[in-house]
Simulated scan of single mutants.
Amino acid sequence: MASDKIKDFSKRLSGTGEGSQELVPAATVVLLRPSPDGFETLMLRKNSKLAFGGMWVFPGGRIDPEDGHEDLPMDERARIAAVREAMEEAQLELRAEDLEWFSHWTPPPLGNRRFATWFFVTTAPPAEVVIDQGEITDSQWMTPAAALASHQRGDIELAPPTYVSLHYLSQYSDPETALTELGTAEPRYYATHIGQEGDDLVAMWEGDAGYESGDATTPGPRHRLLMGSDGFQLDDSGSPS
C-alpha cells in the first residue's frame, strides 16, 4: 500500500475530488524564445485549487472531444489540444504543424484524473502573454537553468515532468539547436513508478533497477528523480540511450 506521503503527492498532481483512477489524455507545449542567456521558456502558475495547484507548468491541459476527429491519431489530437490551451491560457496563437513531439508521460496508478501527457516544443510567437487570473494566476519567461535554480531554492514548485523537461532543455545553448535535436530524436516515454528511499519520494522509469518492483533501494542502474526535502535530483545513469 502506498504511504501517506505518496498519496498526498499524487493528490497534488490530480486535484481534489472522488472517482476512479481515470487516465486522462492531455497535452502541453514548451514555448521557446531567444534571450541574452540563450533562450527562455514560458512558465505559468496554476491556481492552487486545481490539479498541479500552485505549481509552475508549461501551457497545456486535457484533450477535449472537440480537439480533432476521434479517428485522428492521438498525437495529432494532442497537437490540436496544445494549440487550443496556449490560446486559452496565454492568448498565444500557435500552429499545430509547428509543434515537435519530444516526450510522453504516464503517471503512476495513484490518485484520480491521472493525466497521460504529450509534451511538445515550438518557437514562441512574438505576442504578449495574457493570462486569465483564474486557472492561471501568474506567468514568467525563464531560462531553463534559472527555473531549475529557482525550484532548488524553494521559490517555485515544479512537477517531475516539468523538472525533467527543463533539465534536458538546460543542456542546449540556443533555441534552434534545442528544436532541431528534440524534433529529430525519438520521443521519450516515461511511465512513472513511485517509491521511497528513506523519507524521500523517488520517481522511477524503465531502465531503473527498482522500476518493476517499486523498491527504490534496489541496487543497480538508475533512471529516476529523487524528490527530497532539499530539492529534486535527476539520476539517469541507467537511462535508455
Results as ranks from 00 to 15, higher is better:
R33W: 08
P59R: 00
L31Q: 02
W118K: 04
W56R: 12
E97L: 15
R62Q: 04
M55W: 10
R84K: 08
E76C: 10
G19M: 07
V57R: 00
E100M: 09
G111E: 07
F119K: 02
V24G: 01
P36N: 15
G53M: 12
Q91D: 15
A127K: 13
L32D: 04
R84D: 03
A149R: 11
S35M: 15
P108H: 08
G61P: 11
V129A: 03
A127C: 15
G53Y: 12
L50Q: 14
T16V: 09
S14V: 06
P107K: 13
D138V: 13
F120L: 11
T117H: 01
H151G: 15
T117N: 04
L99W: 14
V129T: 14
E76R: 04
L148W: 07
R45C: 09
Q133F: 15
E40S: 15
P59N: 03
R84C: 02
I80F: 02
G53D: 14
T106N: 02
P36L: 06
R77H: 11
P25I: 04
L148F: 10
Q133V: 14
E135F: 06
R84V: 01
R45G: 04
N47D: 14
E85I: 05
G54D: 07
L50R: 06
R114K: 15
E70I: 08
S139G: 13
G54Q: 13
Q91A: 11
A78H: 09
L32K: 09
T122E: 12
L92S: 14
F119D: 03
L99P: 04
F120K: 03
H151D: 11
A78I: 05
E89I: 02
D71R: 09
A81D: 07
N112E: 12
T143M: 05
L110A: 10
A78R: 06
M87E: 00
V57F: 02
E88Y: 02
L148R: 10
D67P: 02
A81Y: 03
P73S: 12
G38M: 07
A26Y: 10
K46H: 05
P65R: 12
I80Y: 00
A127E: 12
T123R: 10
W141H: 05
R33M: 08
R114M: 04
E66N: 00
F39P: 03
A149I: 10
G134Y: 13
F39Y: 09
L42A: 04
A124K: 14
R77M: 06
D75F: 13
E70Y: 10
W118G: 06
S14M: 14
E18S: 11
P59Q: 03
W118I: 04
T28I: 13
F52G: 00
I63P: 03
D71P: 10
E89T: 09
A86T: 05
L31P: 00
P109R: 13
A86H: 07
F52M: 04
A96F: 05
T143L: 09
L42V: 04
R12D: 07
E40Q: 08
E135S: 14
A26V: 06
E22I: 00
V29M: 13
L92T: 03
L92Y: 08
G54F: 05
V30A: 12
N47K: 05
P59Y: 01
Q21A: 14
V121F: 12
V30T: 10
I131Q: 03
E100W: 14
V83E: 02
P108C: 13
S103Q: 04
E128Y: 07
V24K: 01
D132F: 00
P108T: 06
S48Q: 10
G19D: 15
